[in-house]
């Protein structure tokens, strides 16, 4: 045939040119949020630690002088930064649905690319691979900074969030990176399915919200729990992520807690006696379950992302006359 195309299309310059605004926004977001986390990690943690030192040195009774503002600023900035990290999957999904595929199919620029010599499958591969690398690296960096910041505060700042509080758990590990990648896949798929920018933007954000909701229900059951037993007098305690709680009977059976209250009252003691209860049990995840939980959940979310990616490729192949098409 004539003019054999030896050279491969230069996809990266094309992609960066077409999605330049997104690249700028993503860089800006990383700088802003990364800078905030560094500020929190350094000066704000130091100031809050110093304020707690002042507070803990105060004598009981009398006036206590300590820098309360530093403690509150630390708490606020930490929460805002955590929520900002958690917003990344939604932003990625909305962008992917709206701009990456939805707008391209709505305005026909996807078809323009396909008639410029790159196959639809190659187009989608490039459109997923380059953003996935940038989103993965960027979100990974944010998560790392968040984790380092949280670790730095844990031993010095008394109001550092516990490892299992929702926003800290999600923003502290690879799970949010997986969610961001799932958001990318969900957005790309929504754009291909709906072929309209705005609809795909909304659908992708809703898809991430649904995935997250499902994850929140499933998460405690992704790893076997530890069980602690405590006496009736002390009341139940849970030194970690609580999963289930109730009463233990003399035979060792776990039954529901009738919610009577403390054994100090005669009625409750009578009720517990009737139920043959000897103590409280607590199913929970101790701190040592942090990584198993993070990694299994990350794996599950990545599997969902891979499934959505597969569906997107199948859909594109079936719709266009691409090689290896189903029909």
């Amino acid at each position: 045939m004539t003019a054999p195309t030896v050279a491969a299309p230069r996809l990266l310059p094309w992609l960066l040119r077409v999605h330049r605004p997104a690249l700028y926004v993503w860089t800006g977001l990383l700088v802003l949020l990364g800078g905030t986390l560094l500020w929190l990690w350094g000066p704000l943690t130091d100031a809050a630690a110093e304020a707690w030192r002042q507070y803990n040195a105060c004598a009981t009774g009398g006036v206590c002088r300590y820098d309360q503002d530093a403690i509150l600023r630390y708490k606020d900035v930490y929460l805002y930064a955590s929520f900002a990290v958690l917003a990344v999957p939604f932003l990625v999904a909305a962008w992917a649905g709206g701009a990456l595929t939805g707008r391209e199919l709505e305005h026909g620029t996807a078809q323009l690319a396909w008639s410029q010599g790159i196959s639809p499958a190659r187009w989608l591969t490039a459109k997923l691979a380059v953003p996935a690398a940038l989103v993965g690296a960027g979100t990974g960096l944010l998560v790392l900074l968040h984790h380092l910041t949280w670790s730095a505060g844990r031993s010095r700042v008394d109001n550092t969030k516990s490892w299992f509080s929702t926003e800290t758990f999600y923003a502290n590990g690879p799970l949010v990176v997986a969610l961001a990648l799932a958001g990318l896949a969900a957005g790309a798929l929504a754009g291909l399915l709906l072929r309209r920018s705005l609809a795909a933007l909304g659908a992708a954000a809703v898809a991430v919200a649904a995935l997250w909701t499902a994850l929140r229900f499933a998460l405690p059951h992704l790893w076997p729990t530890a069980t602690g037993v405590s006496g009736l007098d002390g009341g139940p305690g849970y030194p970690g992520l609580l999963v289930d709680q109730g009463l233990v009977t003399a035979t060792g059976a776990h039954i529901d807690n009738p919610g009577c209250g403390s054994t100090a009252t005669a009625e409750c003691r009578e009720l517990f006696d009737r139920l043959d209860a000897v103590g409280y049990y607590t199913d929970y995840h101790p701190a040592s379950h942090y990584w198993p939980l993070q990694l299994t959940a990350t794996g599950a979310v990545l599997a969902a992302a891979a499934l959505m990616t597969l569906i997107a490729f199948r859909l594109l192949r079936r719709r266009t006359a691409d090689k290896g098409a189903a029909r």
Partner: peptide, 18 residues
């Protein structure tokens, strides 16, 4: 969002050799 020159450069990027 691209300029005319950028659009033509895109064509060159996507069709090397032709």
């Amino acid at each position: 969002q691209l300029t005319v020159a950028e659009t033509l450069r895109t064509g060159a990027d996507l069709n090397p050799g032709r």
